[in-house]
Design a protein around this nucleic acid. Structure first.
Lengths: 103, 103
DNA sequence: AATTTACTTGGCGAAACAGCCAAGTAAAGA
DNA sequence: TCTTTACTTGGCTGTTTCGCCAAGTAAATT
């Protein structure tokens, strides 16, 4: 594979990985309605604050999120307006259709 | 989180995870042009046949792919026509924009 | 200046994932 | 029927990811 398209693949994978975890997906979905601070997101996903913070770092470094400190809070928001249509597509896939073979 | 929406989240995560690996992403991209048999995909990604087969199982169980045996080959094809627009969205994100803070 | 609040970072053990080899299977061909 | 082809599955080791606790930081408040 040429170096160029490998770069592109790696970047795509980083973004997709940043969504490929229940807590991070929930965060992404929540942020579609607008920015939230870390403590709100912590409450939403219900894990330790440090865990949430690390998830947010993953998402930010993938390019999915922006952060901004205002007052004593840090606010995160989506940089990608197009998640919704993808999720609709994902939801349209039947749970697990067995195409061939039994078992 | 209510059981219902957890199911939905889990299903979404399964689909996203099925794309969150370089080889699997390359496979998904290749299948946008039409079905391919396992041995062609093996050549494309360059790993062991057993490895490719396992990747395909992950993608199929997530609902992304259909399989069909014809002659002596097994053909896989996408069940999801919407990947392209998602990839365009993913590519629109700048590599890693540092929004705030130095370091 | 000391304390509190709202995070981020380091570190570590547990769990999940990846990829190879070897073995199993099922259909096609000799 | 025996062999070959095209996979799939089992098993194992190495790597990555996850989530907690503890410690660090920086801005706001007292």
């Amino acid at each position: 594979m040429p170096a160029r398209s490998q770069d592109r693949t790696d970047r795509r994978v980083a973004v997709i990985k940043a969504l490929a975890h229940p807590s991070r997906l929930i965060i992404a979905e929540a942020l579609q309605a607008g920015e939230q601070c870390v403590c709100d997101l912590r409450e939403l996903v219900g894990s330790d604050l440090s865990t949430v913070s690390k998830h947010l770092t993953v998402m930010r470094e993938a390019g999915l999120l922006e952060m901004e400190k205002r007052g004593q809070n840090v606010y995160y928001r989506l940089r990608c307006p197009c998640l919704l249509s993808f999720f609709e597509c994902v939801d349209s896939l039947a749970p697990v259709r067995r195409t061939n073979g039994k078992k």
